[in-house]
Design a protein around this nucleic acid. Structure first.
Lengths: 194, 194
DNA sequence: CCTACCGATCGGTAGG
DNA sequence: CCTACCGATCGGTAGG
């Protein structure tokens, strides 16, 4: 008999929880809601997860790890600053499209993490923001970018990319690829005629 | 004895509720939490409000009414499309700075409105988005703006302005005025050197 | 505006 | 993985 990988129940619980947290919020989602989606009793889930907090923790840190890995990779690429920013924007949108519910939870529900972990999460995010802002500042210094406020530019980019979550749905008129192109044009070239 | 206007308790309840909803989410905020901030028992609040739902309703529709009024005013002003978009961005940021918690609730917790009112709210928001997108489309037709996708431009603008909520705090290095200027530059002129 | 209280539901545990 | 159940807390009402 060949060993066949069992579908990991923990994974299923995390995925269903992410969808529910996105739709109803962390506080608005009960363990019984999640259990209902997974197809077991609430009590049974505790064989796979430690607590409701731990579900949130797993989702948030998995996503923040991906963000930081992306940043480190892009920093090492032999590209202009304009190209680096473009790649980061594309990676953001792709992660949102592929892993929407988890990204949404990491963006909105991280604040319900228990205190110790909340500090760690905030630190990780701040580290990401610093690295991204540094790319922008270097691009300005190199004459590639206009002399905007790097922090304002950073948050404008991050927020533009974030709204994709509320807005993008497969089968809508725009493909993910087209959406990336349009957002990049808007952010890098601006709205007004040159 | 001259009649002195009593501080309207209902107002106080709505304000404290908005702050708590912003921080802990609608589902994560209990009537007892709100009562504690207001300084009365939970049961006593029902002399001033009908239900927890009704608190959310009041906050959300007050804000959406302001947004739509702003749009209607700006549409009538004798300005270029570039100037109209600039005015709308400034009004957004100003409302966020002056009425932060309520704007935050209208942006995030509207989805917990009971079904009938949720439809009304979504309709109002869609109406606002349509009007704003039309200004952008007309600006493109008039040759003022680049040929971006109007919907993408709209959401890039709305989301950039929305992040101010998470980010702006009085006494930070930037004033509200400077923040407006920087965001407008970034959105209208773009990041990249011309 | 308060005390007292309702039925429902919460996250989680015991024990199998 | 389930049944049975815990104490705590929820939104809201009765009655004053």
């Amino acid at each position: 008999m060949t060993k066949i990988a069992k579908p990991p129940k923990r994974q299923i619980i995390l995925e269903e929880a992410a969808k529910l947290f996105k739709d109803k919020g962390y506080g608005g989602t009960s363990m019984r809601d999640i259990a209902g989606q997974v197809g077991m009793e609430a009590a049974s889930m505790y064989n796979h997860i430690k607590s409701k907090d731990e579900i949130l923790d797993s989702i948030c840190f998995r996503i923040s790890d991906v963000y930081i890995a992306h940043l480190r990779e892009v920093e090492e690429l032999p590209l202009s600053f304009g190209e680096k920013v473009r790649v980061l924007i594309r990676l953001h949108i792709q992660l949102m499209v592929e892993d929407g519910p988890a990204v949404s939870v990491a963006n909105h529900d991280w604040k319900y993490l228990p205190n110790a972990r909340l500090t760690e999460f905030t630190t990780a995010r701040r580290q990401y923001e610093k690295g991204f802002a540094a790319l922008i500042a270097e691009g300005i210094a190199a004459g590639e970018f206009q002399a905007v406020n790097p922090t304002v530019a950073l948050f404008t980019i991050l927020s533009a990319v974030r709204w994709v979550e509320l807005w993008f749905q497969p089968g809508r008129s725009l493909s993910a690829q087209e959406l990336e192109d349009h957002i990049i044009t808007m952010l890098l070239k601006g709205l007004e005629q040159r």
